[in-house]
Write a protein that binds this DNA or RNA. Structure first.
Lengths: 220, 220
DNA sequence: GCGACTTTGTTCCTGCGTTCACAAGCGGTT
DNA sequence: AACCGCTTGTGAACGCAGGAACAAAGTCGC
C-alpha cells in the first residue's frame, strides 16, 4: 500500500510553506478571496513554478483558470505544518533576545505557546513578560514535564548553552532552537536548529563583497 | 589569465566557513595550535569530507599527516570572509530584538561595527546602547552617507519595514538583514536576507512532527 | 452551447551540493 | 636513509532542488 501523498516534504519547501502561510494570512485580512500562483509567488519572493511545485506536495488545492482560494489554502498549509494545534514551548535565557522572543506575538498565531520562561539570574526571576512569569532554572524540568513541552528555545550565553541543552533533552524536549553561538551536541532523535545571527550577517557581507568585486572587475 | 582560485564560493560553504571561524577562535583561545579535519568537523557539526572541500575553496592550507594550524587557518578564513576589515552597519528598530542586536558583542569581533541606531518612537531616542545613542529616523540618511554604511539591519515592526528598506537602499545601503516578518522588495543590486524567527520555529516543529509520525508508523 | 483564454499541475532537464573513496604528501620511527 | 601510518586534497557519483516548458482543466465571452 502506497500513500498517495508521500510523507516526506523537502525541508526547503517547508520553510517556504511557512512564508506562504504568512502571506496568505495577510491577504485574508485584506479581504482577498482568491489569488493566483504568480501573485502569491511575487508576494513571497519566489518563482511561480516553484511555488506550484511546493503546493503540489500537499495535493491539488487550486482551481485551474482561477487560482487558489485564500482561506482554504491557508488552512491546508496550516494543517500540514501543524500550526492549527497548539505546541508547548519553553524559553531559556531572558536577556534582550529572550525577552524579544517571549514578547513576539507572531508565535501565538502560528500555533506556538510559551509555557515557561527561565533564567539563571535572580534579577530576572519574577519578572512578567508576555503574560508569563520568569522562573528560576530549578523549575525547568517540572514545567517541561507538566506541559509536555516538546520544543525548547535557547537564548542564553554560549557558555551555558550546552548544559541547558542537556537538561532540556533529559526532560523530554525533542526539538531545540538554538540562538547561542555554539554548536550543540544532542542525542539522536533530538533536532537542534541553530540560528546564528552573526553567521547570517557574515554571509550577507560576503555576498555584498563578492558582488562589489564582480562589479569592479567588469568596469576594469 | 585564469584566477587560480575561483571567485565564486557557494553560499552554503560561506555559512559554514563562518561557523568554522567561530570554532577556531574558541580553539585558539584554548591554546590549541593544530587541529585535524575530523576534530574540527565534529566541533562544527558537519561531515569531515565536506569540511575539507569547503576549505579547499580557499587554497591548500593544511599539512598532510598533521592537520591545520589553528591561527593560520583562522586568519585565512577571516580574510576571505572579509572579517578583518571593519564594516559599518546601521540598525533600525530599537525594540527588544534591536536592543539585543545592538548589545551583542559577537558582531564586533567579526568585523561589524554599528555606526547608527535608529527608532521612530521618541521614547527610544536618546537612549544609549552598547556605546551608541539612539537617533531619530530623520538622521538615517545623513549617518549612512557619513559613514558609508553598506549594511543595514531592520528590526522594526512589519508594517514599516518596507519603508525603512526603501530609505536604506536610497541612501546607498547594499546589503540588508531583515528580521521583520515580511518579504521585502528591493532594487536589483541590493541583497536582502530574511531571518524569520517564526519560520525557523515552524520548520523545527514540522521536522519534529514528521519524526514522531515516522516513529509511530514503525511501531504500528 | 461552443470556443478561446487563463491558470494549475506535472514532467523533464539542468545545475548544484553532498558524500564517498582514493591518490598524494608529510612526519615519525627504526 | 627508508618505511609506515596518518591526514589532506581532489575526482567521481549520487541525490536533490530549481527552472522551464507543456498538457489538463475550468471559466468567461459570444
Amino acid at each position: 500500500m502506497i500513500q498517495p501523498r508521500p510523507r516526506t516534504i523537502p525541508e526547503a519547501t517547508v520553510a517556504r510553506l511557512a512564508v506562504y502561510l504568512r502571506v496568505l494570512s495577510g491577504l485574508a485580512d485584506g479581504g482577498r478571496t482568491t489569488v493566483s500562483s504568480g501573485e502569491l509567488a511575487s508576494a513571497a519572493g519566489v518563482n511561480p513554478a516553484g511555488l506550484r511545485k511546493d503546493l503540489s506536495h500537499l495535493g491539488s488545492c487550486g482551481v485551474r483558470g482561477v487560482g487558489y482560494e485564500v482561506r482554504a489554502l491557508r488552512e491546508r498549509i496550516a494543517r500540514v505544518l501543524g500550526a492549527e494545534q497548539s505546541r508547548a514551548c519553553v524559553l531559556v535565557g531572558i536577556g534582550n533576545l529572550g525577552t524579544a522572543l517571549a514578547d513576539y506575538a507572531g508565535f501565538g498565531s502560528r500555533g506556538f505557546r510559551f509555557v515557561g520562561l527561565f533564567d539563571a539570574a535572580p534579577a530576572q526571576v519574577g519578572q512578567e513578560i508576555g503574560g508569563l512569569t520568569v522562573q528560576p532554572m530549578t523549575e525547568l524540568e517540572a514545567t517541561v514535564t507538566a506541559h509536555e513541552a516538546s520544543i525548547g528555545v535557547i537564548a542564553t550565553p554560549a557558555e551555558v548553552a550546552q548544559q541547558v541543552c542537556d537538561r532540556l533533552t533529559a526532560a523530554g524536549v525533542r526539538s531545540i532552537l538554538n540562538f547561542a553561538p555554539v554548536t550543540l551536541t544532542a542525542p539522536v532523535g533530538v533536532d537542534v536548529r541553530p540560528v546564528d545571527l552573526s553567521v547570517e550577517l557574515q554571509v550577507l557581507a560576503f555576498l555584498g563583497q563578492q558582488r562589489s568585486a564582480r562589479a569592479a572587475e567588469v568596469t576594469a
